[in-house]
Design a binder for these strands. Structure first.
Lengths: 340, 340
DNA sequence: CCTGCTTGCTTAAACGTTATAGCTAAAAAC
DNA sequence: GTTTTTAGCTATAACGTTTAAGCAAGCAGG
């Protein structure tokens, strides 16, 4: 049988026979600073634990203007990439005394705006945002309003001077392409999304640059999937790409990878003999595909840690210092890209 | 360039030339109720939108004692099952005007207690909790303290009169077993976790009951994995079970399923010829395993919806009415359980 | 012309904190 | 023996809301 009523600071102070101020000092570890008597302090602490005192965060926030909360807006928290990164953010934030509030935008600006505005009125101290298409305007506005600290994750908004942490998408795609070429594939293509976000653009650019550097400018082939009907469009695109002569594919995303694996299975295309593959992000599914998938692994933990580090830093030091960071991916080589 | 300062109710009231009370009434849609003049109301509203007024939730919460927030404690939000269910909870809660605060316990009571206590001081109106081992005491205490509404998810605590939503684990396992027997397997075994949680117990019970009902009491075999070293123990357990004569396995969990698939791949065991399989929860990996996995699918969306429905109901109607609900699983039949 | 009702508004207390400014008594300094 | 310092504490305003209680004017009825 616990205590039925939540006990407030006032209750604790009363029971301990001191003023609320003193109780507040002690319970916030500022005993010395405010020269509270040693025994008084101990007494207050014991009374507090005895009454199982839990500070009321609403009151704390109201008073301090801080919530010790950061908002995180991802595309879809049920997507393994984002659920993993969210988990890491949660852990890292907890270490630093922050709670995290999640929201999924489904790559839709309107949803994103709603979530952001909710987070804002919850008074989050900062936000980690995965921007979606057409969100540049809202996010720019938010940034300029100065109402909260912002850090962009996974993708950035060109020209906007806001902190950003993400993969070095250019080099990741570049390396994946070079790897395929070195493995003996002649005409690798890329399967991407039909969206204008920076991570996608950079991956495509990396692929194209690698091809150009190897004198294969004329063999550049990029197939685009509609990101709201990935599964449906994958069959067609894979078919078209292979018909057009691609002997390998770089799959630009987690979801694209899975969709294309299904397509390849249905179309009965031999991997890697007829088609080499490099995927993105990693998944158990990659391992069980009959020809386990080579993929670019994102160091999710590092990305999350850096993101939280930077945003908490911004919150603490109210310094408008924008910090950005590109994290290098790691190519995990498996069978799907080994010609022999 | 947005407004630099956040505007408070007082600011709005001042600019509109009315008292804060009136502004509050109008902005909460209680204009009629408190007989506010029609034009005054309109005027206040226009001033509010003009100033881009956002209510301060901390103040609202402090005053009302409500936060319109529910806490959700899962084992690990990066586990696909929980990330999917979290996503559904988020959506359903949003529909009802609630925000969700997530935490991952890692199946550890201490972490769970910390999370719960944080949620409590954040003042969540209710909590959806996936209880872990040895958490019965804390949760019972929490429930009895009456400090918040509680709903248990996925697993329950026997003897504790608290709302619960989860799969009908007994019938799911029972049906999976019967399915294997009907498909011609003679001696199916089960691979489970060495934990005492109800969902596990029920799955095991369902399996055993089915075996007993078919007169196979003597062929009951349950192998246990340590849940903190699933991958390591899977090889041994799978080996032992097959050596002991199991010609099929029911894999009691998402994670167990994946771990055993890796083991089976390493041990080079033919599925379904030498070993039939039924997994749990579903995963893309199941589809790419060379012999696609039959599995018990949990209707995650229904589970989440019911959970949110019940908890919000409890919060609203302060009625201590405990509601529980078992959801039926669905067996998705694929190749791994077809002898022929 | 007073009473009582309605309409439309305001005042102010309260929610649980934090922190500034001030108070008291004892110790130290002169 | 008076003044100054200091240790240890308290009183209280403020944060942004909500809402009970109350007030002023207008109007109907007597």
């Amino acid at each position: 049988m616990g205590n039925i009523k939540k006990s407030s600071l006032k209750d604790v102070a009363a029971k301990a026979g001191v003023s609320t101020a003193l109780a507040s000092f002690v319970l916030n570890g500022k005993g010395k600073e405010y020269r509270v008597g040693e025994q008084t302090a101990k007494h207050i602490l014991s009374v507090a634990t005895e009454m199982n005192y839990q500070p009321n965060m609403a009151a704390k926030s109201l008073r301090s203007g801080k919530t010790n909360t950061i908002g995180v807006v991802v595309s879809d928290i049920s997507n393994p990439f984002f659920s993993q990164i969210s988990r890491c953010i949660e852990d890292e934030a907890a270490k630093r005394g922050y709670t995290v509030l999640f929201g999924s935008s489904d790559e839709d600006v309107d949803k994103l705006n709603i979530i952001v505005s909710n987070l804002l009125s919850k008074g989050v101290d900062g936000m980690i945002i995965v921007p979606c298409e057409n969100s540049a305007e809202s996010i720019t506005g938010l940034a300029e309003s100065g109402k909260t600290s912002i850090l962009l994750l996974d993708r950035t908004i060109p020209g906007l001077n806001v902190s950003y942490v993400g993969l070095n998408n250019f080099s990741a795609a570049y390396n994946a392409t070079v790897h395929l070429l070195d493995a003996g594939f002649k005409t690798p293509g890329m399967v991407a999304y039909d969206i204008a976000l920076t991570h996608m653009r950079e991956r495509i650019r990396g692929y194209k640059k690698a091809m150009a550097d190897r004198g294969l400018k004329d063999n550049i082939r990029v197939g685009y999937l509609k990101h709201n009907s990935v599964r449906k469009s994958a069959d067609k695109v894979v078919q078209v790409m292979t018909d057009a002569g691609a002997d390998a594919l770089i799959l630009a995303t987690n979801t694209i990878s899975i969709a294309c694996l299904y397509a390849i299975q249905r179309l009965n295309i031999r991997v890697p003999e007829r088609l080499g593959l490099v995927g993105f992000d990693g998944s158990d599914a990659f391992e069980f595909f009959y020809s386990p998938l080579t993929y670019t692994k994102q160091p999710v933990d590092v990305i999350a840690q850096k993101a939280v580090e930077i945003i908490t830093d911004q919150i603490a030091n109210k310094n408008r210092s924008v910090q950005s960071m590109l994290i290098e991916g790691e190519l995990v080589v498996r069978k799907s890209s080994s010609k022999r």
